[in-house]
Design a protein around this nucleic acid. Structure first.
Lengths: 168, 168
DNA sequence: TCCAGACCATTGGATGTCCTAGTATATTCA
DNA sequence: TGAATATACTAGGACATCCAATGGTCTGGA
Protein backbone atom coordinates (compact mmCIF):
# COMPACT_ATOMS: atom_id res chain seq x y z
CA UNK A 1 0.00 0.00 0.00
CA UNK A 2 0.90 3.65 0.08
CA UNK A 3 3.15 5.07 2.71
CA UNK A 4 1.27 6.31 5.77
CA UNK A 5 0.81 10.04 5.88
CA UNK A 6 2.63 11.88 8.64
CA UNK A 7 -0.65 13.46 9.77
CA UNK A 8 -4.30 12.50 9.77
CA UNK A 9 -5.82 14.35 6.80
CA UNK A 10 -9.27 14.24 8.35
CA UNK A 11 -8.08 15.81 11.58
CA UNK A 12 -6.43 18.49 9.47
CA UNK A 13 -9.67 19.11 7.65
CA UNK A 14 -11.48 19.42 10.97
CA UNK A 15 -8.98 22.05 12.09
CA UNK A 16 -9.39 23.88 8.78
CA UNK A 17 -13.14 23.92 9.28
CA UNK A 18 -12.79 25.36 12.76
CA UNK A 19 -10.28 27.91 11.56
CA UNK A 20 -12.86 29.13 9.06
CA UNK A 21 -15.44 29.58 11.77
CA UNK A 22 -17.48 26.47 11.01
CA UNK A 23 -17.08 25.32 14.58
CA UNK A 24 -20.37 23.50 14.94
CA UNK A 25 -19.99 21.70 11.62
CA UNK A 26 -16.36 20.64 12.05
CA UNK A 27 -16.84 17.53 14.17
CA UNK A 28 -19.77 16.06 12.21
CA UNK A 29 -17.85 16.74 9.00
CA UNK A 30 -14.88 14.82 10.39
CA UNK A 31 -17.05 11.92 11.53
CA UNK A 32 -18.77 11.68 8.17
CA UNK A 33 -15.52 11.90 6.24
CA UNK A 34 -14.08 9.19 8.47
CA UNK A 35 -17.03 6.95 7.67
CA UNK A 36 -16.43 7.47 3.96
CA UNK A 37 -12.76 6.59 4.27
CA UNK A 38 -13.35 3.60 6.56
CA UNK A 39 -15.85 2.20 4.11
CA UNK A 40 -13.26 2.51 1.38
CA UNK A 41 -10.66 0.60 3.40
CA UNK A 42 -13.09 -2.15 4.38
CA UNK A 43 -14.42 -2.54 0.86
CA UNK A 44 -10.89 -2.95 -0.48
CA UNK A 45 -10.18 -5.70 2.07
CA UNK A 46 -13.41 -7.49 1.32
CA UNK A 47 -12.93 -7.37 -2.43
CA UNK A 48 -9.41 -8.75 -2.05
CA UNK A 49 -10.75 -11.75 -0.18
CA UNK A 50 -13.60 -12.29 -2.64
CA UNK A 51 -11.56 -11.95 -5.83
CA UNK A 52 -10.30 -15.59 -5.81
CA UNK A 53 -13.95 -16.67 -5.73
CA UNK A 54 -14.75 -14.58 -8.77
CA UNK A 55 -17.08 -12.45 -6.66
CA UNK A 56 -17.45 -8.77 -5.94
CA UNK A 57 -18.99 -7.49 -2.74
CA UNK A 58 -22.25 -6.65 -4.46
CA UNK A 59 -22.56 -10.14 -5.89
CA UNK A 60 -21.51 -11.75 -2.62
CA UNK A 61 -24.17 -9.83 -0.71
CA UNK A 62 -26.85 -11.11 -3.04
CA UNK A 63 -25.53 -14.66 -2.81
CA UNK A 64 -25.43 -14.49 0.99
CA UNK A 65 -28.93 -13.08 1.15
CA UNK A 66 -30.28 -15.88 -1.01
CA UNK A 67 -28.50 -18.50 1.09
CA UNK A 68 -30.49 -17.34 4.11
CA UNK A 69 -33.81 -17.17 2.27
CA UNK A 70 -36.36 -19.95 2.41
CA UNK A 71 -35.76 -22.17 -0.60
CA UNK A 72 -32.77 -20.08 -1.62
CA UNK A 73 -35.02 -17.86 -3.73
CA UNK A 74 -36.31 -14.30 -3.59
CA UNK A 75 -38.14 -11.89 -5.88
CA UNK A 76 -35.87 -9.28 -7.44
CA UNK A 77 -37.64 -6.39 -5.74
CA UNK A 78 -37.42 -8.14 -2.38
CA UNK A 79 -33.68 -8.54 -2.82
CA UNK A 80 -33.41 -4.91 -3.83
CA UNK A 81 -35.25 -3.78 -0.71
CA UNK A 82 -33.32 -6.00 1.68
CA UNK A 83 -29.94 -5.09 0.22
CA UNK A 84 -30.98 -1.42 0.09
CA UNK A 85 -29.74 -0.95 -3.44
CA UNK A 86 -31.39 0.15 -6.65
CA UNK A 87 -33.28 -2.43 -8.69
CA UNK A 88 -30.86 -1.86 -11.52
CA UNK A 89 -27.97 -2.93 -9.33
CA UNK A 90 -29.73 -6.19 -8.60
CA UNK A 91 -30.42 -6.71 -12.29
CA UNK A 92 -26.75 -6.17 -12.98
CA UNK A 93 -25.61 -8.54 -10.22
CA UNK A 94 -28.07 -11.24 -11.23
CA UNK A 95 -26.92 -11.00 -14.85
CA UNK A 96 -23.36 -11.75 -13.83
CA UNK A 97 -24.18 -14.37 -11.21
CA UNK A 98 -26.43 -16.14 -13.70
CA UNK A 99 -23.69 -16.07 -16.33
CA UNK A 100 -21.44 -17.78 -13.77
CA UNK A 101 -24.09 -20.41 -13.06
CA UNK A 102 -24.53 -19.36 -9.44
CA UNK A 103 -28.18 -18.29 -9.70
CA UNK A 104 -31.07 -18.77 -12.09
CA UNK A 105 -34.01 -16.55 -12.91
CA UNK A 106 -37.51 -18.00 -12.93
CA UNK A 107 -40.95 -16.47 -13.36
CA UNK A 108 -43.05 -15.83 -10.29
CA UNK A 109 -45.82 -18.43 -10.11
CA UNK A 110 -48.64 -15.96 -9.50
CA UNK A 111 -47.37 -12.47 -10.38
CA UNK A 112 -46.30 -12.03 -13.97
CA UNK A 113 -44.41 -8.86 -13.18
CA UNK A 114 -41.93 -10.34 -10.75
CA UNK A 115 -38.88 -12.45 -11.40
CA UNK A 116 -37.52 -14.90 -8.85
CA UNK A 117 -33.81 -15.33 -8.32
CA UNK A 118 -32.79 -18.74 -7.07
CA UNK A 119 -29.50 -20.10 -5.84
CA UNK A 120 -28.06 -23.07 -7.73
CA UNK A 121 -26.18 -25.80 -5.81
CA UNK A 122 -22.93 -24.27 -7.10
CA UNK A 123 -24.05 -20.88 -5.85
CA UNK A 124 -24.84 -22.23 -2.43
CA UNK A 125 -21.46 -23.90 -2.12
CA UNK A 126 -19.61 -20.80 -3.27
CA UNK A 127 -21.56 -18.62 -0.86
CA UNK A 128 -20.59 -20.89 2.02
CA UNK A 129 -16.92 -20.87 1.08
CA UNK A 130 -16.80 -17.13 0.50
CA UNK A 131 -18.49 -16.48 3.83
CA UNK A 132 -15.94 -18.65 5.62
CA UNK A 133 -13.15 -16.70 3.95
CA UNK A 134 -14.63 -13.34 4.92
CA UNK A 135 -15.23 -14.48 8.47
CA UNK A 136 -11.64 -15.52 8.99
CA UNK A 137 -9.90 -12.85 6.93
CA UNK A 138 -11.96 -9.75 7.65
CA UNK A 139 -14.56 -10.01 10.37
CA UNK A 140 -12.57 -11.69 13.15
CA UNK A 141 -9.65 -9.36 12.42
CA UNK A 142 -11.56 -6.16 12.04
CA UNK A 143 -9.29 -4.35 14.50
CA UNK A 144 -12.29 -2.85 16.23
CA UNK A 145 -12.36 -3.46 19.96
CA UNK A 146 -15.34 -5.35 21.36
CA UNK A 147 -16.72 -2.24 22.99
CA UNK A 148 -16.20 -0.24 19.81
CA UNK A 149 -18.12 -2.81 17.79
CA UNK A 150 -21.01 -2.47 20.21
CA UNK A 151 -20.87 1.31 19.95
CA UNK A 152 -20.76 1.26 16.16
CA UNK A 153 -23.75 -1.05 15.91
CA UNK A 154 -25.77 1.20 18.18
CA UNK A 155 -24.71 4.54 16.71
CA UNK A 156 -25.08 3.48 13.10
CA UNK A 157 -28.27 1.59 13.88
CA UNK A 158 -29.80 4.75 15.31
CA UNK A 159 -28.66 6.67 12.26
CA UNK A 160 -30.09 4.18 9.80
CA UNK A 161 -33.39 4.11 11.61
CA UNK A 162 -33.59 7.91 11.54
CA UNK A 163 -32.69 7.84 7.86
CA UNK A 164 -35.72 5.67 7.17
CA UNK A 165 -34.04 2.34 6.52
CA UNK A 166 -36.31 0.47 8.90
CA UNK A 167 -38.76 0.90 11.74
CA UNK A 168 -38.45 -0.14 15.31
CA UNK B 1 -37.39 7.24 -0.75
CA UNK B 2 -38.33 3.64 -0.31
CA UNK B 3 -40.69 2.51 2.40
CA UNK B 4 -38.88 1.63 5.63
CA UNK B 5 -38.45 -2.08 6.20
CA UNK B 6 -40.33 -3.57 9.14
CA UNK B 7 -37.08 -4.98 10.49
CA UNK B 8 -33.40 -4.03 10.46
CA UNK B 9 -31.83 -6.23 7.77
CA UNK B 10 -28.41 -5.93 9.37
CA UNK B 11 -29.68 -7.10 12.75
CA UNK B 12 -31.29 -10.01 10.95
CA UNK B 13 -28.01 -10.86 9.28
CA UNK B 14 -26.28 -10.75 12.64
CA UNK B 15 -28.82 -13.22 14.02
CA UNK B 16 -28.34 -15.45 10.99
CA UNK B 17 -24.60 -15.43 11.56
CA UNK B 18 -25.02 -16.44 15.18
CA UNK B 19 -27.52 -19.14 14.25
CA UNK B 20 -24.89 -20.64 11.98
CA UNK B 21 -22.35 -20.78 14.77
CA UNK B 22 -20.32 -17.77 13.67
CA UNK B 23 -20.77 -16.19 17.07
CA UNK B 24 -17.49 -14.36 17.27
CA UNK B 25 -17.79 -12.96 13.75
CA UNK B 26 -21.42 -11.85 13.96
CA UNK B 27 -20.98 -8.51 15.70
CA UNK B 28 -17.99 -7.28 13.64
CA UNK B 29 -19.87 -8.35 10.51
CA UNK B 30 -22.85 -6.27 11.59
CA UNK B 31 -20.70 -3.26 12.41
CA UNK B 32 -18.90 -3.42 9.07
CA UNK B 33 -22.10 -3.88 7.13
CA UNK B 34 -23.59 -0.91 8.98
CA UNK B 35 -20.61 1.22 7.98
CA UNK B 36 -21.13 0.26 4.35
CA UNK B 37 -24.80 1.16 4.49
CA UNK B 38 -24.26 4.40 6.39
CA UNK B 39 -21.70 5.51 3.85
CA UNK B 40 -24.23 4.87 1.12
CA UNK B 41 -26.87 7.00 2.85
CA UNK B 42 -24.48 9.85 3.53
CA UNK B 43 -23.07 9.81 0.02
CA UNK B 44 -26.57 10.04 -1.42
CA UNK B 45 -27.36 13.07 0.76
CA UNK B 46 -24.11 14.78 -0.14
CA UNK B 47 -24.53 14.22 -3.86
CA UNK B 48 -28.06 15.58 -3.69
CA UNK B 49 -26.76 18.80 -2.17
CA UNK B 50 -23.88 19.08 -4.63
CA UNK B 51 -25.83 18.33 -7.79
CA UNK B 52 -27.14 21.92 -8.21
CA UNK B 53 -23.50 23.06 -8.20
CA UNK B 54 -22.63 20.62 -10.95
CA UNK B 55 -20.34 18.78 -8.56
CA UNK B 56 -19.98 15.21 -7.42
CA UNK B 57 -18.49 14.32 -4.05
CA UNK B 58 -15.20 13.28 -5.62
CA UNK B 59 -14.86 16.59 -7.43
CA UNK B 60 -15.97 18.57 -4.40
CA UNK B 61 -13.35 16.89 -2.23
CA UNK B 62 -10.63 17.89 -4.65
CA UNK B 63 -11.96 21.43 -4.86
CA UNK B 64 -12.13 21.72 -1.08
CA UNK B 65 -8.62 20.34 -0.70
CA UNK B 66 -7.26 22.89 -3.16
CA UNK B 67 -9.08 25.72 -1.43
CA UNK B 68 -7.13 24.95 1.74
CA UNK B 69 -3.79 24.55 -0.02
CA UNK B 70 -1.25 27.38 -0.19
CA UNK B 71 -1.83 29.21 -3.44
CA UNK B 72 -4.78 27.00 -4.24
CA UNK B 73 -2.50 24.55 -6.05
CA UNK B 74 -1.18 21.04 -5.45
CA UNK B 75 0.70 18.40 -7.42
CA UNK B 76 -1.52 15.60 -8.64
CA UNK B 77 0.26 12.97 -6.56
CA UNK B 78 -0.05 15.11 -3.45
CA UNK B 79 -3.79 15.42 -4.00
CA UNK B 80 -4.03 11.68 -4.57
CA UNK B 81 -2.23 10.96 -1.29
CA UNK B 82 -4.22 13.44 0.78
CA UNK B 83 -7.55 12.34 -0.60
CA UNK B 84 -6.52 8.68 -0.25
CA UNK B 85 -7.71 7.78 -3.70
CA UNK B 86 -6.07 6.26 -6.75
CA UNK B 87 -4.09 8.61 -8.99
CA UNK B 88 -6.39 7.73 -11.86
CA UNK B 89 -9.34 8.98 -9.85
CA UNK B 90 -7.64 12.34 -9.48
CA UNK B 91 -6.90 12.44 -13.19
CA UNK B 92 -10.57 11.77 -13.86
CA UNK B 93 -11.75 14.45 -11.45
CA UNK B 94 -9.29 17.02 -12.75
CA UNK B 95 -10.37 16.32 -16.33
CA UNK B 96 -13.95 17.19 -15.48
CA UNK B 97 -13.18 20.11 -13.19
CA UNK B 98 -10.89 21.56 -15.85
CA UNK B 99 -13.59 21.16 -18.48
CA UNK B 100 -15.89 23.14 -16.19
CA UNK B 101 -13.27 25.86 -15.79
CA UNK B 102 -12.89 25.28 -12.05
CA UNK B 103 -9.23 24.21 -12.10
CA UNK B 104 -6.33 24.43 -14.50
CA UNK B 105 -3.35 22.13 -15.02
CA UNK B 106 0.11 23.65 -15.15
CA UNK B 107 3.58 22.12 -15.36
CA UNK B 108 5.63 21.87 -12.21
CA UNK B 109 8.42 24.50 -12.30
CA UNK B 110 11.22 22.12 -11.34
CA UNK B 111 9.98 18.57 -11.84
CA UNK B 112 8.98 17.79 -15.40
CA UNK B 113 7.07 14.70 -14.31
CA UNK B 114 4.57 16.37 -12.08
CA UNK B 115 1.52 18.37 -12.98
CA UNK B 116 0.10 21.04 -10.73
CA UNK B 117 -3.62 21.48 -10.31
CA UNK B 118 -4.68 25.00 -9.50
CA UNK B 119 -7.97 26.49 -8.50
CA UNK B 120 -9.42 29.17 -10.75
CA UNK B 121 -11.32 32.11 -9.21
CA UNK B 122 -14.55 30.42 -10.35
CA UNK B 123 -13.44 27.21 -8.67
CA UNK B 124 -12.69 28.98 -5.43
CA UNK B 125 -16.07 30.65 -5.39
CA UNK B 126 -17.89 27.44 -6.17
CA UNK B 127 -15.97 25.58 -3.49
CA UNK B 128 -17.00 28.17 -0.94
CA UNK B 129 -20.65 28.03 -1.91
CA UNK B 130 -20.74 24.25 -2.03
CA UNK B 131 -19.11 24.02 1.37
CA UNK B 132 -21.68 26.36 2.84
CA UNK B 133 -24.45 24.21 1.37
CA UNK B 134 -22.98 21.00 2.75
CA UNK B 135 -22.45 22.56 6.14
CA UNK B 136 -26.04 23.64 6.49
CA UNK B 137 -27.75 20.72 4.73
CA UNK B 138 -25.68 17.75 5.85
CA UNK B 139 -23.14 18.35 8.56
CA UNK B 140 -25.18 20.33 11.08
CA UNK B 141 -28.08 17.95 10.59
CA UNK B 142 -26.17 14.71 10.61
CA UNK B 143 -28.49 13.21 13.22
CA UNK B 144 -25.53 11.95 15.20
CA UNK B 145 -25.53 12.99 18.82
CA UNK B 146 -22.59 15.05 20.04
CA UNK B 147 -21.25 12.15 22.07
CA UNK B 148 -21.70 9.80 19.14
CA UNK B 149 -19.73 12.10 16.87
CA UNK B 150 -16.90 12.07 19.37
CA UNK B 151 -17.04 8.30 19.57
CA UNK B 152 -17.06 7.89 15.81
CA UNK B 153 -14.08 10.16 15.33
CA UNK B 154 -12.11 8.21 17.91
CA UNK B 155 -13.13 4.70 16.83
CA UNK B 156 -12.68 5.32 13.13
CA UNK B 157 -9.50 7.29 13.74
CA UNK B 158 -8.01 4.32 15.57
CA UNK B 159 -9.09 2.06 12.75
CA UNK B 160 -7.61 4.23 10.04
CA UNK B 161 -4.34 4.52 11.91
CA UNK B 162 -4.13 0.75 12.29
CA UNK B 163 -4.96 0.38 8.62
CA UNK B 164 -1.91 2.45 7.73
CA UNK B 165 -3.57 5.66 6.66
CA UNK B 166 -1.37 7.83 8.84
CA UNK B 167 1.03 7.74 11.75
CA UNK B 168 0.69 9.18 15.18
C1' DT C 1 -66.06 -4.82 -17.32
C1' DC C 2 -62.46 -1.77 -18.32
C1' DC C 3 -59.10 1.68 -17.97
C1' DA C 4 -55.95 4.69 -15.38
C1' DG C 5 -52.50 4.44 -12.18
C1' DA C 6 -49.25 1.61 -9.58
C1' DC C 7 -45.76 -1.80 -9.68
C1' DC C 8 -41.83 -4.63 -11.66
C1' DA C 9 -37.78 -5.47 -14.30
C1' DT C 10 -34.74 -4.04 -17.94
C1' DT C 11 -32.10 -0.96 -20.98
C1' DG C 12 -29.19 2.97 -21.92
C1' DG C 13 -26.43 6.80 -20.30
C1' DA C 14 -23.41 9.18 -16.93
C1' DT C 15 -20.06 8.84 -12.98
C1' DG C 16 -16.59 7.06 -10.13
C1' DT C 17 -13.24 3.60 -8.59
C1' DC C 18 -9.70 0.39 -9.28
C1' DC C 19 -6.28 -2.20 -12.06
C1' DT C 20 -2.86 -2.93 -15.72
C1' DA C 21 -0.03 -1.10 -19.06
C1' DG C 22 2.48 2.48 -21.28
C1' DT C 23 5.08 6.90 -21.85
C1' DA C 24 7.90 10.44 -20.07
C1' DT C 25 10.94 12.42 -16.67
C1' DA C 26 14.18 12.08 -12.39
C1' DT C 27 17.26 10.08 -9.55
C1' DT C 28 20.68 6.82 -8.15
C1' DC C 29 24.70 4.34 -8.52
C1' DA C 30 28.31 1.69 -10.76
C1' DT D 1 28.67 9.50 -17.81
C1' DG D 2 25.32 6.11 -18.73
C1' DA D 3 22.31 2.43 -17.50
C1' DA D 4 18.99 0.75 -14.12
C1' DT D 5 15.48 2.00 -11.08
C1' DA D 6 11.88 4.94 -9.29
C1' DT D 7 8.27 8.27 -9.86
C1' DA D 8 4.32 10.84 -12.26
C1' DC D 9 0.63 10.94 -15.09
C1' DT D 10 -2.52 9.10 -18.65
C1' DA D 11 -5.12 5.59 -21.51
C1' DG D 12 -8.17 1.72 -21.74
C1' DG D 13 -10.98 -1.84 -19.55
C1' DA D 14 -13.92 -4.00 -15.87
C1' DC D 15 -17.45 -3.09 -12.27
C1' DA D 16 -20.94 -0.96 -9.60
C1' DT D 17 -24.26 2.68 -8.70
C1' DC D 18 -27.68 5.90 -9.80
C1' DC D 19 -31.22 8.10 -12.81
C1' DA D 20 -34.58 8.39 -16.59
C1' DA D 21 -37.24 6.07 -19.70
C1' DT D 22 -39.59 1.88 -21.60
C1' DG D 23 -42.72 -1.92 -21.83
C1' DG D 24 -45.23 -5.60 -19.52
C1' DT D 25 -48.46 -6.84 -15.67
C1' DC D 26 -51.84 -5.95 -11.74
C1' DT D 27 -55.39 -3.85 -9.40
C1' DG D 28 -58.98 -0.96 -7.77
C1' DG D 29 -62.51 2.23 -8.68
C1' DA D 30 -65.90 4.13 -12.08
Amino acid sequence: MATPLPRDPIADAQRNWEAHGWVEEAAPMAAITAIMRTQQILLARIETVLRPFGLTFARYELLALLSFARGGALPMNKASALLQVHPTSVTNAVDRLAAAGLVVRSPHPSDGRTTLVELTPEGRTLAKNATAALNSAVFVQSEFGDDDVTQLIRILGDFRRNAGDFEG
